Amino acid sequence: MDVHEDDDRPDVLLTGLLFYDLVLTGLGRPPAPGEEIWTSGMGCGPGGIANLAVAAARFGLRTSLATVFGDDFYGAHCQEVLAGQEGVDLALSRVADAWPTPVTVSLALPGAQGAAHGHDRALVTHGQEPPYSQDTLMGDPPPARTALVHLEAEPRAWLAKAATNGTLIHADVGWDPTQQWSAALLEQLALCHAFLPNEAEAMAYTRTDSAMAALHALADLVPVAVVTRGGDGAIAVDQTTGEFAEVPALDVEVLDATGAGDVFGASFVAASLGGWPLEQRLRFAVLAAGLSVGHHGGGLAAPGWYGVDQWWRTVTDPGLRQAYGFLADRLPPNVGPPVRYAPVTPPARP
């Protein structure tokens, strides 16, 4: 799939908070106070907004990231991974003196009955408010084919500027810790081309009682509405083409679900830039997210073209071969080298 055509703009524009993630897996239960538990798995690497950046870059998208790195080991390591290893453009990013890169420790735990994929996470984060805001980093944002954004209660000025210059905004939203679910946030969808919340968020913001009802409510507000449903797959409506699609999730073994939603979003954008039909876009995003949960971390678990190609070459289930048969024509001739997953510890610096 050639997403570049003759367009020299970035394919994806991103801004947001970056974290250094340390993910622990293999825990049968959370530790009790005063208890030490040894675990069988660990991975580390850049997280937060970096999840979207890596996932997009691994599909060959020209990815421009505006974020803040601390002037510390974690910040330097994240820069090396993003720019050197993954080819993400960091020209809009800044290094902040005497500001620590936020660090998150994630414990991947067996989830409560009925939880998505049967897994849950516990997170502990150390961080401070970054010294540069998204609007400061972006300024007058460069024209881009798309932007992947995380909507917040306070609208960002750069978002309207990007929409005005022709950038197609693909947005998601996070859990509201106040549980007020202000409908005012949805007013920002007037700037967006697509909205991709999970079903809990979609139902809460639309005051509906099912994922399908939430989808129809959102379809009145944004051209492309997608609702992800964890272990139940995803549903979507594209008002620009009149398409509706509903696809199931893959039956996969989950190691770590960190960043799976980000991988879904970046994959959906990659397929959208290729002009694929809605069902193919949705299946592709579900597939990429499903492949990511078998590895540690967020972005570094993203399969990229190489991982999707490896899956397609080895899958034998007749139903999957039929449902994903479109990959035979969509996979590029050169899928690139094997992706580098999150290491247990970062390599020693020279």
Rank of each mutant, 00 (worst) to 15 (best):
M1N: 10
H4L: 12
D6P: 10
D6Y: 07
R9V: 03
P10C: 04
L13G: 02
G16P: 02
F19L: 15
Y20F: 14
Y20I: 01
L22Q: 15
P31H: 12
A32G: 01
P33K: 09
E35G: 09
E35N: 11
E35I: 06
T39N: 15
S40V: 13
G43Y: 03
C44V: 14
C44P: 11
C44R: 15
G45S: 09
G45K: 00
P46Y: 10
G47K: 00
I49N: 06
S64T: 15
A66P: 10
A66Y: 04
T67G: 11
T67Y: 03
V68C: 13
D71S: 02
G75I: 08
A76S: 14
H77Y: 15
H77G: 12
C78K: 03
V81Y: 01
L82F: 00
G84H: 02
G84S: 00
G84F: 03
E86H: 12
G87S: 04
A91P: 08
L92M: 01
S106V: 15
A108L: 13
P110Q: 07
G111Y: 01
A112G: 12
Q113Y: 13
L123Y: 05
V124W: 07
G127D: 08
Q134V: 08
Q134H: 13
T136P: 08
P142F: 00
A144R: 01
A147E: 03
L151W: 03
K161W: 09
K161P: 08
A162M: 03
A163S: 11
G166Q: 11
I169S: 01
I169W: 11
A171P: 02
D172G: 13
D172S: 08
W175H: 13
D176M: 10
T178D: 15
Q180I: 13
A183H: 07
L186I: 06
E187G: 07
Q188V: 11
L189P: 01
F195H: 04
N198Y: 04
E199R: 15
A202D: 06
M203I: 09
M203V: 11
R207A: 13
L215F: 06
H216R: 15
L218S: 07
L221T: 04
P223A: 10
A225N: 11
V226D: 10
V227T: 05
V227Q: 06
D232N: 14
I235N: 06
A236I: 06
Q239L: 14
F244W: 11
P248D: 07
L255S: 05
D256E: 07
A257G: 10
A257Q: 01
T258I: 08
V263L: 00
F268K: 09
A270H: 08
W276S: 13
W276C: 11
P277V: 12
P277H: 04
Q280W: 00
G290A: 03
G290L: 01
L291E: 10
S292N: 04
V293F: 00
V293R: 05
G294W: 07
H295R: 15
G297L: 12
G297R: 05
G299R: 02
G299S: 05
A301C: 07
A301M: 04
D309P: 11
T314C: 12
R321W: 05
Q322M: 13
A323Y: 06
F326V: 07
A328M: 04
D329Y: 00
D329E: 15
L331I: 05
R340L: 15
Y341I: 05
Y341P: 12
A342C: 09
V344C: 14
T345Q: 15
P346G: 05
P347E: 14
A348I: 14
